[in-house]
Simulated assay, not measured.
Amino acid sequence: MSCLAWNCHGLGNWRARIELKELIQAKDPLVVFLSETWSKKDQLEKIRCNIKYAGLFVVPKQDVGGGLALLWKHGVTVWVDSFSRFHIDAKVHGGSADAWRFTGFYGAPDAQDREDAWAMMRLLNSKPHLPWLCMGDFNEILFTEEKGGGRIRPHCQMQAFRDTLDVCGFVDLGFTDPEFTWNGNRHGHIIWERLDRGVANHDWLEKFPTATIRHLHYVELDYRPLLLILDPNGESQRWKRKPFRFEEMWLADRGCSDTVLRAWESQPRGQPMFWVSTKLKKCKKMLKAWSKDHFGSVKKQIVQKKELLWKAEEELANGGSHDSVVELRRDLNVLLDKENHMWAQRSRIQWLINGDRNTGYFHGVATQRK
Rank of each mutant, 00 (worst) to 15 (best):
I213Y: 08
A252S: 10
D196H: 03
D137G: 11
L195G: 05
H187E: 08
R214A: 13
M135V: 06
T176W: 06
E248C: 12
M135Y: 05
E145S: 14
P243D: 00
I190Y: 01
H155T: 10
R197S: 11
L216E: 10
R224N: 10
H129K: 15
L142R: 15
L251D: 02
L221R: 00
G148A: 14
R122A: 11
R122W: 02
Q237L: 04
R186T: 15
K240F: 10
N201D: 15
R238L: 13
P243G: 00
H215G: 07
A160R: 13
D222M: 02
M121A: 15
M158E: 04
N183S: 15
E140M: 14
R224Y: 07
L221V: 00
S126C: 06
I229A: 03
H202A: 14
G188V: 05
T144D: 12
C168E: 03
D166H: 14
V171T: 01
N233C: 13
F175V: 04
Q159D: 14
W192A: 14
M249Y: 13
L133C: 13
L130W: 09
G234M: 02
H215T: 11
L230C: 03
N185S: 04
H129C: 13
D203K: 11
P209Y: 09
P178T: 06
L230N: 01
K147I: 07
A160S: 15
R194T: 14
P131I: 10
F175A: 02
F208I: 04
E206T: 12
K240S: 11
M135D: 05
T144K: 09
D137Q: 07
H217P: 06
W192Q: 10
R151N: 08
P131W: 09
D163K: 07
K242A: 08
L165K: 10
I152D: 04
L227N: 02
A211N: 08
I190A: 08
F208G: 05
I229G: 00
E220W: 00
W192N: 12
M249S: 11
F180T: 05
L124E: 11
H187F: 04
A252M: 05
R245V: 00
V167G: 02
F170I: 02
N233K: 15
T212K: 14
E235G: 01
D231K: 13
A252C: 06
E146M: 12
E140V: 07
F180I: 05
R186V: 13
P243Q: 00
R214K: 14
K207T: 15
P243V: 00
P209N: 10
I190Q: 08
D222N: 06
L173D: 01
D222Y: 02
E220H: 01
F138V: 12
L226N: 01
N139A: 14
H189V: 09
